[in-house]
């Protein structure tokens, strides 16, 4: 006999549908904004402070990021939710520190990628977006990059789900590719909202391209293609080092890690419920990843 009062009901399909709808809207807002900005950029930059483009970049990317947060945040299990502040602290402390040095990297996504590997792409995307929003409490200039950060988290989670972190040599490659996509998407924000980059080291690289006659967006995109892939390759590698140093029990407490066998060395023990088959469903009702 089992009373419903002490046990959890299964998740309703309607809630899952709403969530999916919000996620798609958020992704569309981000993609639409990016395409609009790239298509319209030449008219704007020479006409003075391109505030129309700045507003579109700001509102489009922010609305997209907020929609993603609204879609994902309520559905995350508490065990993932409490990790987000931990990830944010890692992002902010490392990002603030590295940003103050003259290194053309950021390293401000370690927490985001860590969550994405442990809890999946949806949690990673939400962590990325939240990271920018909470960090803007200390540094409002990171706010417009929320969409880019969400994209990094989402891509890292997808890479983890498809087994990239099971093979160590694939990790920096996946980070490199993620960095290319993330850098290209974030470049219009830097170009239209800031008219440049916020760091001195990255600014020098942009200056070099500008001196060769590139448009601002082109120069910043090229700078992003130099900095971001390297940065994300480093971040992914550091996260892989960290994750493999965690004890088995800690790694296995995450249903995403168990179900998709994200990490190597977890599927060799006999008699364990991470074997393929019906036992794989042990962590199912959490809906932790999407």
């Amino acid at each position: 006999m089992s009373s419903p009062s002490l046990t959890l009901p299964p998740q309703s399909p309607a809630a899952a549908r709403n969530r999916r709808l919000l996620e798609i809207l958020g992704a569309l807002a981000i993609a639409g904004t990016y395409i609009y900005l790239v298509l319209n950029q030449p008219a704007d930059i020479t006409g003075g402070p391109g505030s129309a483009a700045a507003l579109i970049a700001l509102s489009g990317f922010l609305v997209g990021a907020v929609l993603l947060i609204v879609a994902v945040l309520p559905t995350l299990p508490v065990s993932t939710l409490v990790l987000i502040p931990v990830a944010l602290v890692l992002n902010i402390v490392l990002g603030q520190f590295v940003g103050s040095t003259l290194v053309p990297f950021y390293l401000d996504a370690i927490g985001t990628v860590l969550i994405a590997v442990l809890a999946g792409p949806a949690a990673g995307a939400a962590t990325g977006a939240l990271s920018s929003i909470v960090w803007s409490f200390f540094n409002p200039t990171v706010l417009p990059f929320a969409a880019g950060a969400a994209l990094i988290g989402c891509l890292a989670g997808l890479a983890a789900r498809h087994g990239v972190f099971r093979r160590f040599y694939l990790v920096p490659v996946a980070g490199f590719l993620t960095g290319i996509i993330g850098g290209v998407v974030s470049a219009p924000v830097a170009a239209f909202v800031f008219g440049g980059t916020s760091g001195l080291a990255t600014g020098a690289i942009v200056s070099a391209f500008r001196s060769m006659g590139d448009s601002l967006l082109a120069a910043i995109t090229k700078q992003a293609l130099i900095s971001d892939p390297m940065d994300k390759a480093i971040v992914f590698t550091l996260v892989a080092l960290l994750v493999y140093a965690l004890p088995r029990r800690t790694r296995l407490q995450f249903p995403f890690v168990r179900r998709h066998r994200v990490l190597a060395g977890l599927d060799v023990q006999p008699g364990l419920d991470v074997q393929p088959g019906p036992d794989m469903e042990a962590g199912r009702p959490t809906g932790q990843d999407s």
Partner: peptide
């Protein structure tokens, strides 16, 4: 101080970038 930590590098970066290299 917190605002200066954000705005001074940003301002310098923009001044150097556009002050020296503005092909338009």
């Amino acid at each position: 101080p917190a605002a200066a930590a954000v705005l001074v590098p940003l301002g310098l970066s923009l001044l150097v970038l556009h002050g020296l290299f503005f092909p338009e």
